[in-house]
């Protein structure tokens, strides 16, 4: 079975979707980096699964704690000061991943892949995100916004029959 979308198509979807979410919700501009500029030690990681009739997959946002705090401040203004606990930072990252996944889901629907989103799954990871893993169905993009970097990946593959 062939992949529903090529890696290049997924990269283009990410390049359209990620800056739009930052611009709309955070009023911030992003820079796309072909390769990760800085490693992200022990980052927050949010995963949103997507299930369609003929394909399924997931979107993953990975960002440092410092980056998540800056995102919270941009999103919530002074209310961002309420975001102090690790669980609250996870929630910020999860909601942002949810918005990114929603934007990507709209792009997938425009290409004939209608699906539904699942609630974000949140965790901290000890791994350092540093390289694009070799997978034909996965696109990993790296981004910089002022003082922080993050990664966003889209992995869409055909459903096993």
């Amino acid at each position: 079975m062939t992949n529903p979308l090529s890696q290049q198509e997924l990269v283009q979807i990410a390049i359209r979707s990620v800056p739009e979410v930052w611009r709309t919700q955070l009023k911030k501009e992003l820079q796309f980096s072909p390769e990760l500029i800085l490693p992200l030690p022990s980052p927050h990681l949010a995963t949103v699964a997507w299930t369609g009739s003929n394909a399924s997959g997931k979107m993953v946002l990975t960002i440092s704690s410092a980056g998540a705090r800056l995102v919270a401040q941009a999103l919530l203004g002074t209310s961002g000061n309420c975001i102090t606990e690790d669980t609250d930072l996870k929630d910020v990252v999860g909601e942002l991943c949810n918005m990114l996944a929603g934007r990507v889901s709209t792009e997938l629907r425009d290409r004939g892949f209608t699906g539904t989103l699942h609630p974000p799954v949140l965790c901290r990871t000890s791994t350092t995100v540093s390289a694009n893993p070799p997978s034909p169905t996965l696109c990993l993009t790296h981004w910089t916004c002022g003082d922080y970097s993050f990664t966003f990946s889209i992995d869409i593959h055909p459903k096993a029959s």
Binding site: A72, L76, G77, S79, G80, V92, N98
Partner: peptide, 10 residues
């Protein structure tokens, strides 16, 4: 999401 609830409060 507490984040959305805080955002709406703001």
């Amino acid at each position: 999401s507490k984040t959305i609830r805080l955002l709406l409060a703001r």
